[in-house]
């Protein structure tokens, strides 16, 4: 399943963000001094892409452009979301550096997966105002999964071309599985 920038723009539209035909670039995000260079990743978008490579199913391709477009659009739109995403990324990076001796981006996929499991993300409640690991679940992991599974491409991974959250019209509900 190939994700595209168009999928990302559709995912942004589904959370009420219209890009208005204006291209969004990573330099637009985090450009307001919200990153503390002492504790934060060099490039948060790269960290989100590295995280998506772990949490997205292996069948999915085109992750880089999808994640960059979605995350930049999302953060540009919402200062609180940006600030808390940066905090969650900093916590993820801090754990990766302390326990695995490298930045999250430079870890192997197996070690990135291990970071998440050792942090307990799989059992954490997704809570935008919760603990560090609850915020990692909400702002990072679930954020990426929400973008994917409300998109037609993400839905198709599980046989659902018009998943709830996507305004895909009135044809799919009448179609059978073989249509």
């Amino acid at each position: 399943m190939e994700l595209s920038r168009r999928d990302a723009i559709a995912a942004l539209a589904a959370v009420g963000i219209g890009t208005g035909g204006v291209a969004l670039y990573r330099s637009d995000a985090f450009g307001d001094g919200s990153i503390d260079s002492e504790t934060s990743p060099d490039d948060p978008i790269d960290t989100m892409i590295a995280l998506a490579a772990v949490v997205y199913p292996s069948e999915v391709s085109g992750i880089d452009e999808f994640v960059e477009t979605y995350v930049v659009g999302r953060l540009e739109d919402d200062e609180t979301h940006e600030e808390r995403t940066v905090q969650a990324l900093a916590h993820l990076e801090g754990y990766a550096s302390d326990e695995f001796g490298d930045s999250f981006v430079d870890l192997s996929p197996e070690d990135r997966d291990a970071v998440l499991r050792e942090l307990g993300v799989q059992n954490a409640q997704p809570n935008p105002e919760g603990s560090d690991v609850e915020r990692i679940r909400y702002y990072l992991v679930n954020e990426l999964l929400y973008a994917l599974f409300t998109s037609p491409t993400g839905g198709e991974l599980v046989g659902h071309e018009n998943p709830p959250g996507h305004g895909g019209g009135l044809d799919s509900y009448r179609r059978g599985p073989d249509a």
Binding site: V55, Q122, P126, L145, L148
Partner: peptide, 9 residues
């Protein structure tokens, strides 16, 4: 997807 706690495949 958002409740299960698993990811990837």
């Amino acid at each position: 997807a958002l409740r299960d706690g698993s990811w990837g495949d």
